[in-house]
Nucleic acid binder design. Structure first.
Lengths: 223, 223
DNA sequence: ACCTGAACACCGTTCAAGT
DNA sequence: ACCTGAACACCGTTCAAGT
């Protein structure tokens, strides 16, 4: 037996980008965005943090690959039927629900355009807009409007998820938010005061659908 | 003369949250989000990094205060006239242009709801929706739809700004994005391929306005 | 070719010590 | 009350050294 510090055994099963991405998703889902570090990831994969860089360019690359994996699954499972308008609702709800279960996906979509997941969503929405009979010249704007609305909600939901745990009473928290918004000068915030009650107990998913419907109604006026 | 390391002089002009926020805005505007560190801020203010914490809770507090300052100025300068629909366009464009000149504001809005700036925008939009005659029960959803669309665009623009400098040819960059989206299986991306040409040379501001108009058209169908 | 883990160059935040 | 700046506990990323 020697005194020299023993190097760890080399891992038997080869690492791969897929395995790394799956491990990252597991960490993100169970412990949140902040918990995903290369050290935590390396520990979970029983390897050195540097090994990950052999398969993944950097943290942004890793996050985009994880987001793409989730969105791919969602898109594969979305049931497109009952006409193009309902199909768009289904696609949008698919993304919404994915963000609900994987809030970090929301942050990623909202803050990183040009990733593969964005192309997938755009494609799915665009095809349904064509089926809906939206004139060709208006299709890009219509798709981008729906997409941007979805991304806006995505960012907000990701932020809301970051509070989970720290905030136990959602209504009380939202009440304190509304109070802070209006406190600088209550007479300056008549609208916020009016909707404060609805803010406290509104259903995010239902409000999301209402927004999609509003944009669809607007698209319906296009000729 | 002593050999003891000389402590720096104590600053003559008192620090204040306002002064700190202004310095932060200057750093964010000239050198970008990544350049705002407590060390850089302390250097610019000729103080210790710890001093900043006497006036500001943490980095999030600082960023929210900076965002609120910018949005307050924008809202004070927005000209509301020509009827409620045009006023909503003016408010939205005000936010869009603010994000264009201060991209970090976009990132902040997209990723941090419940900050004061959000209350300001919501209030301004809501009041115009009331003037537009939107039925009371639909006002909250309508306002939230417009707001979320704006936040979606905000996040994308902030991300686009992060590339400035690194990317010199916008068209070439967007072409490579579209190519990457479709390359996995070109036959799976007919819509993206169709709009790729528009993607390359579309005007962000004009597309933003088209989205606002689409939502306004949808709101017009509400009764 | 792929993996290991120490080392580097940073962060935000805290806090004892000063005025 | 307010300020100073070293110290702490982290990060992402690199890279010489291993297999």
């Amino acid at each position: 037996m020697t005194n020299k510090t023993q190097r760890s055994e080399r891992r038997a099963d080869a690492l791969s980008k897929d395995k790394i991405v799956e491990a990252a998703i597991a960490i993100l889902d169970t412990d949140g965005e902040a918990a995903l570090t290369f050290r935590a990831l390396a520990a979970r994969l029983s390897t050195g943090s540097g090994a990950i860089y052999w398969h993944v360019a950097d943290k942004s690359d890793l996050l985009m690959a994880a987001t793409d994996a989730i969105i791919s699954r969602v898109m594969a499972n979305v049931v497109v039927a009952d006409g193009p308008a309902n199909s768009i609702r289904a696609i949008a709800l698919g993304v919404f629900d994915a963000i609900d279960t994987h809030p970090w996906v929301g942050a990623q979509l909202a803050g990183e355009p040009w990733q593969a997941a964005m192309g997938q969503i755009l494609e799915r929405i665009g095809r349904q807009l064509q089926a809906l009979g939206v004139p060709q010249h208006a299709q890009f704007n219509a798709a981008s409007s729906l997409l941007n609305f979805i991304l806006g909600v995505a960012g907000q939901n990701a932020a809301a998820a970051r509070l989970k745990g720290r905030v136990t009473d959602r209504s009380a928290f939202l009440a304190s938010v509304a109070a802070q918004w209006t406190q600088r000068d209550p007479s300056e915030y008549p609208f916020v005061r009016q909707v404060a009650a609805q803010l406290l107990d509104h259903d995010d998913r239902q409000q999301f659908l209402a927004g999609i419907d509003l944009i669809l109604a607007g698209i319906g006026t296009l000729r």
